[in-house]
């Protein structure tokens, strides 16, 4: 599988990573090497096999609908480098 710089750009935008120009080529090459290796899976016929996302057959883990006190707001906000006394702050988003 060929990984182009355009593909690296596409996944970079999706993952909000902006690689410096000079790193795109090497990253594409590294990813290509890894992805090509992953193609070994194509050697295994998996038709008809149900994808296994949860390894154990645990089911229906539910919580009772009972209110617990919410958290101290200051404690939640404290770790942010962009906040005021009541909210997290980000650059203008509203159109």
């Amino acid at each position: 599988m060929k990984i182009t710089e355009e593909m690296v750009d596409y996944v970079s935008v999706l993952s909000r990573l902006k690689l410096p120009e000079e790193e795109k080529g090497p990253m594409a090459a590294e990813l290509e090497k890894i992805v090509s290796y992953m193609d070994v899976l194509n050697g295994l016929d998996t038709s008809g096999i149900e994808p296994l996302s949860h390894v154990f057959p645990l089911k229906n883990v539910l919580r009772e609908d009972a209110v617990a006190p919410s958290f101290d707001r200051d404690a939640l906000l404290k770790g942010s480098m962009g906040r005021d006394e009541e909210a997290f702050l980000v650059p203008k988003t509203v159109e």
């Binding site: 990984i3 996944v11 993952s15 990573l17 990813l31 992805v35």
Partner: peptide, 18 residues
């Protein structure tokens, strides 16, 4: 994210996104 994550983490994020 680009300055905050190291190269190996970025590689795995890109791979996982792909």
């Amino acid at each position: 994210r680009t300055q905050g994550f190291g190269r190996e983490v970025q590689r795995r994020i890109l791979l996982g996104t792909f």
